[in-house]
Design a protein around this nucleic acid. Structure first.
Length: 688
RNA sequence: GCCCCUGUAGCUCAGUGGAUAGAGCAGCGGAUUUCUAAUCCGCUGGUCCCAGGUUCGAUUCCUGGCAGGGGCGCCA
């Protein structure tokens, strides 16, 4: 684990951190000097600048307890001293523009509370957003660290369901998060493309397929293949029931062990096993069918991945990696790291890791699940030599990964300690329907779910009357909103928690939801378009921060940002029927930074402070490998904006200057919303 | 039996040792004939699972329980 993904480069976007460091500097000058020789007791990471519980107590708060402990003083004394000495240092920093002007400081017991000058606050934060170089939203300075993220890891016998969607969204946004924090990210997929479950689909297709293809059936390839898998399982269940009846076993008497016995004598299973055997012997006909059916599945996956915004740097296939795993086990046996049992099976002793022994090769010499992962792990590091390797895999496999990493340690892989399992809880269905199982065909299919959400979004968008029913982009818009709902719903909760999937809650677009966030962004775009249409604003006055195109627009969601892929400022056409396209990537208004001194309403101040929190939230999220803080932040920012919107008229502000200041504030808010949404893989439509 | 995760408002969840524990949903009552009502404001709602411990201070850290979920040598 590397809790520190932060780097000095981003501190300049974060004046709250600057304030903290300035206060620490004051404390050092006051006391630390007479502690020469001892290691610096005021480690910045031990201190935080927070917000007071109520706004009238101040805008920022500095709890003095940690300093009290380190300096051997009473917290109240520290707060009092800071109240006395900090203003001079803070004023000096405010002069240089790195922090807002402080109107006052007050020691309240053990806290130092700071009151920020509203206009100066607005000026500082909006300048950091609107005129940051590199442009706002660009990855932070390169940390030099390369991280591989394996996620999705589907089986090629069935389409993706909601559980996979959670995995994909976690993986996707984790990649975005780390890239934004200045790391080089390698998203990879590991496809489980061989094994008995694949053989089942193949057998079913041979028996009942009648040569059907995705083209002829009109189905997505993965859905078609999945239907044969379900068909096989249904037929198998029927067959087992028959076999049991023939043996005089009642259906409710079938337990796990009789189940296994029945499968051993099942003709259908025999066919599947035979198919797998032929596959392993590289029987050309079997391989050809396998290639064909897997090809269909990949075409289907590709559409779903594109839709969700997932992209992979490299695909690994189990059919290609399990051989290497076997070799590694053989080598381990030769070196005496692993042991062979009497029946010929290969084992690892893991009691040194507090784990039970683990089988690595079956007695017949074939590989088990972990063997393949062993090979893949080595292959990954051989391919890329990254600094760490993250596996986004469900929590049912925590033990598997503990064992895998232990095995890599036993094999003395120097990077074994850099492997990390990012586990997440299950997605379960309501009404006691239990775990998602596509075997029975009752899973919530990912494509169906996305379609359904898009349909709801489409109805609501049309009902709103702000989108053109004939626009070609309506499909993309509806999909963007539907995905916004689903992605925010799934990413909001901590990864370790199980999610009981509630279709009704997902389809609800009000309150703490993705569409509500998107709506704030769309409102801002609408204000600016109106201002331009009315001649109050000019398109040329928009300050633009180019973003990778899909971030700004509708459609397939945000792909992984690639460094150096920023389009030029001049590339956007202004010929959209809704208004200038530039509206959707503007980060401010020319002259807006100076005008921002005008902003003094409580809602304006609250919005600015919310904007200022973004860098620390990004740092936190990247540090704990979790998109959830970003999701929570976006909802907070949305609420702060909505309050502003209701209390502070923008285009009808009292003065021209205040109008421009508010437009500017709106645009910096839109930029922050857009950027946060992009981290979660959510598009930010400019109208809805 | 052992290991891991979770337990906070009626429901779904935030809250990584600090001030009077917060949102959304649900319920009730309101919002300028508005720059988009997918919004806002108000009210109602809490033994932060329980018991100990550490600490100036614990929803947060430790120990032990309880409850739910997941896992535990030839499934993946």
């Amino acid at each position: 684990m590397h809790p520190q993904t932060a780097q000095a480069g981003q501190d300049r976007f974060d004046f709250i951190l600057r304030v903290r460091d300035l206060l620490l500097e004051v404390l050092r000058n006051a006391w630390d000097s007479d502690r020469r020789g001892s290691p610096a007791p005021l480690d910045p990471d031990a201190f935080t600048v927070t917000r007071p519980p109520r706004p009238e107590m101040g805008d920022l708060a500095f709890p003095c307890f940690p300093a009290a402990k380190r300096l051997g003083r009473k917290p109240n004394e520290i707060a009092a001293t800071l109240a006395d000495r900090a203003p001079a240092a803070l004023d000096a920093a405010a002069q240089s523009g790195s922090i807002p002007r402080i109107e006052g400081v007050r020691a309240v017991g053990p806290y130092l509370n700071l009151f920020l000058h509203s206009g100066s606050l607005a000026r500082t934060i909006t300048r950091q957003i609107a005129s940051a170089e590199p442009p706002y939203g660009a990855p932070l300075p390169d940390t030099g660290r390369t991280t591989m993220v394996e996620y999705s890891a589907p089986n090629t016998n069935k389409p993706l369901h909601v559980g996979h969607v959670r995995n994909n969204l976690l993986g996707l946004s984790l990649c975005n998060l780390l890239a934004a924090a200045g790391e080089t990210v390698l998203p990879v997929n590991l496809v489980n493309d061989r094994g008995i479950h694949i053989a089942k689909s193949m057998v079913a297709y041979q028996k009942w397929g009648g040569g059907i293809t995705p083209q002829r059936s009109g189905q997505k390839g993965d859905a078609l293949v999945g239907s044969f898998y379900v068909r096989f399982e249904n037929a198998l269940r029927e067959e087992k029931r028959r076999l049991a009846r023939d043996q005089g076993i009642a259906p409710d008497q079938i337990d796990a062990s009789t189940e296994r016995r029945l499968e051993e004598v099942s003709p259908l299973m025999a066919e599947a096993r035979d198919c797998l055997r032929r596959w392993e012997q590289r029987d050309p006909e079997t391989r050809a069918l396998w290639e064909t059916m897997n090809g269909w599945v990949y075409e289907g996956f590709d559409r779903t991945y594109r839709r969700l915004g997932c992209r992979f740097r490299k695909w690994y296939f189990e059919s290609e990696t399990y051989g290497l795993g076997k070799q590694l086990v053989e080598q381990g046996l030769e070196k005496g790291v692993f042991q062979r049992a009497d029946d010929g099976s290969a084992w690892a002793r893991l009691e040194a890791f507090g784990l039970k022994d683990k089988i690595l090769l079956r007695s017949d010499g074939t590989s088990v699940y972990i063997t393949q992962d062993l090979g893949t792990a080595v292959l990954k590091f051989d391919d890329f030599g990254m600094d760490r390797s993250i596996y986004v895999v469900a929590s049912e496999q925590v033990l598997h990964f503990k064992m895998l990493f232990a095995l890599l340690t036993q094999l003395e892989m120097p990077w074994a300690a850099q492997c990390h399992h990012l586990s997440y809880g299950l997605v379960t269905l309501p009404h006691g329907m239990g775990k998602l199982k596509s075997r029975e065909g009752r899973a919530v299919d990912a494509d169906d779910l996305l379609d359904e959400l898009a349909a709801v979004a489409r109805r609501k968008a049309l009902a709103g009357g702000y989108v053109d029913p004939s626009a070609v982009e309506l499909d993309a818009l509806a999909d963007a909103i539907g995905q916004g709902a689903l992605k925010m719903y799934l990413l909001q909760v901590g990864a370790e928690k199980n999610i009981q999937f509630d279709p009704d809650a997902t389809i609800d677009f009000e309150g703490d939801t993705g569409p509500a966030v998107q709506y704030s962004h769309a409102r801002i775009c609408s204000i600016v378009r109106k201002g331009i249409a009315a001649g109050q604003l000019a398109t040329e006055d928009l300050l633009l921060a180019p973003l990778p195109d899909p971030f700004a627009g509708l459609g397939t969601g945000a792909p992984l940002p690639e460094k150096g892929s920023m389009p030029d400022r001049g590339q956007l056409a202004d010929d959209s029927p809704r208004g200038p396209a530039a509206v959707r990537i503007a980060v401010g208004l020319r002259g807006g930074v100076d005008a921002a001194e005008q902003l003094g309403a409580p809602e304006e101040k609250a919005l600015c402070i919310e904007l200022a929190r973004f860098p620390s939230v990004l740092r936190l999220a990247a540090g704990q490998l979790s998109p959830a803080p970003i999701a929570g932040y976006l909802l907070d920012l949305t609420k702060a904006y909505a309050r502003f919107y209701h209390n502070c008229p923008v285009l009808r502000a009292e003065t021209e200057e205040r109008m421009r200041a508010r437009v500017h504030l709106c645009l910096t808010t839109a930029a922050t919303l857009r950027r946060g949404l992009a981290l979660l893989g959510i598009a930010a439509p400019d109208a809805m």
